[in-house]
Design a protein around this nucleic acid. Sequence first.
DNA 1: TTAGTATATTGACAACCTTCGATTTACTTG
DNA 2: CAAGTAAATCGAAGGTTGTCAATATACTAA
Lengths: 116, 116
Amino acid sequence: MNKPAPHQSGCCTPLGASRLSAEAAQALGADLGLLGHPIRLQILDLLAQHTDQVCVCDLEAALPVKQPTVSHHLRLLREAGLIDCERKGLWAYYFIRREAVAALRARLLAQLDTLV
Amino acid sequence: MNKPAPHQSGCCTPLGASRLSAEAAQALGADLGLLGHPIRLQILDLLAQHTDQVCVCDLEAALPVKQPTVSHHLRLLREAGLIDCERKGLWAYYFIRREAVAALRARLLAQLDTLV
DNA sequence: TTAGTATATTGACAACCTTCGATTTACTTG
DNA sequence: CAAGTAAATCGAAGGTTGTCAATATACTAA
């Protein structure tokens, strides 16, 4: 991305680079973007309040979207490592990976702290 | 959204409702979605590391997008109350509203804690 | 008043995301 | 084996979001 010529008049002193690199902002944005969807938040919440595994059919029943959509969001959360599943015959049982959620929480918190 | 008939076979015990209501999930998702963009994160970071106000032209110089795009993201952040600005003649000086960021941080933290 | 400048807004376009019907896959059971 | 079922995947439609050129706005200064 080529920057335009700076202003000629002295409105201000030029800033240094952001502490947050473009790559770091991209990564943090991806984390936040993953969490930033109501269905995914509800899935995480449902899984978080059950110590045992939860069958997909129960998630479908608790959520206001159809089966392929639930499956899609489960995939995104699984690919991000926040949840995992175990297949037992026909059924799939999902569970939250609390250590991954805790790590994500810690990362977000660390970044948010620098903004306050 | 009409739910399909539940399975006939006993794969599991039906879940109760999520602790996170659909509305709460929507609101939390909006908060996260606002933060979940690299340019907005960089803007917040740039403003956060300066105690004084920052001229728009400096933000433009520090970001890899063009002027209207910067203006667009500044508007979203301002409408969310996370930043504000003061116009001085031709120039606009933006600043972070640390108490609003802190409130957002607290809200996110409270919700994330229930997931761990 | 005229020319010039910084920022905001508009409008159009592209990229991305979400959703769901249809289908496939993988399994169980008769 | 064939029939049936749960979940994943595919593919298309619709919606939202991000981007920028062009323009408008609001101000300064000659």
